[in-house]
């Protein structure tokens, strides 16, 4: 059985790709899958920070691509889940250090090691790094914020997924597209400061796979090296759990898209 390759991409930077990659990979691992998550953002490595393994990086993705280390040496086992591994990016190199053949070799190697899922955390932009991250994908999680520039960039990425991927080039059927709306703030949507779920779905012509509410927990979790999905009390964590379940084929109702009604205590004390 070959591993399913999922790229997490967006075009625009700062929309939550790495946060999503970390939570998606962790969520799949929580569901009992064997998962590897690869940071394609060579030169600006961040995933290891969010996964909380930055002090355990010895060899990285570029080392494996160049044959300077084996996959086994480079994969960092997650401290929470035994079936989750991180392949960090190199901070000292740039995106030209990656080659299509090298990336393919790494993905094939992971497939041979019986991984169920390989999550590729794409860099921003549509240049080489982003291209290589999406090229081999079977699924794509397109991360979008509810604002016009992010939506337009996602539209561009959706176009590239339909044309500049191995599946497209070999006619193996389209890459499955999942649209994930992050940093969603229902209160700001209600007063017209943000695009609504419906607006985004209408502009892009596809349905969302999940909506992650804007939440302070995300920042706190990231700073502490914990994927927010692990924080099951936080709304963002729950929303990520829902989204991962949907990607795995489960049906779950969309939550956190309405303005929360304030409880009695909140109304008294403000909140």
């Amino acid at each position: 059985m070959t591993a399913e390759i999922i790229v997490v991409t967006s075009g625009k930077g700062g929309v939550g790709k790495t946060t999503t990659s970390a939570s998606l990979a962790t969520g799949l691992a929580m569901a009992g899958k064997k998962v590897a998550v690869i940071d394609f953002d060579v030169g600006l490595r961040n995933l290891d920070l969010i996964m909380g393994c930055e002090r355990r990086v010895v060899y990285d993705f570029v080392n494996v691509v160049h044959g300077e280390a084996t996959l086994k040496q480079s994969l960092i086992k997650d401290k929470r889940y035994d079936n989750l591994f991180v392949l960090a990016a190199s901070q000292t190199r740039d995106k030209d250090a990656l080659t299509q053949e090298g990336v393919e070799k790494v993905l094939d190697g992971l497939s041979e090691m019986d991984f169920d899922y390989i999550v590729c955390d794409s860099p921003a932009g549509i240049e080489k790094g982003a291209h290589l991250a999406m090229y081999f994908a079977d699924h794509a999680v397109v991360v979008v914020n509810p604002e016009v520039s992010s939506v337009r960039d996602s539209d561009r990425i959706l176009g590239l997924l339909a044309s500049k991927t191995r599946r497209a080039e070999k006619g193996e059927g389209p890459v499955t597209q999942h649209l994930l709306l992050t940093r969603y703030n229902p209160a700001r949507v209600a007063i017209g400061e943000m695009l609504s779920v419906k607006d985004v779905e209408e502009i892009l012509g596809i349905d969302v796979v999940g909506v992650i509410p804007e939440s302070e927990n995300v920042l706190t979790a990231s700073n502490n090296g914990i994927p927010v999905i692990v924080d099951t009390k936080s709304l963002a964590g729950q929303a990520y759990s829902d989204s991962v379940a949907r990607i795995l084929g489960e049906e779950r109702p969309l939550r956190f898209v309405e303005v929360p009604k304030k409880g009695f205590l909140q109304r008294v004390f403000g909140g």
Binding site: R152, D155, R156, L158, G159, L160, A162, S163
Partner: peptide, 8 residues
């Protein structure tokens, strides 16, 4: 047939 995406 299908969407013409941004940049296409």
């Amino acid at each position: 047939v299908g969407a013409v995406r941004s940049g296409q």
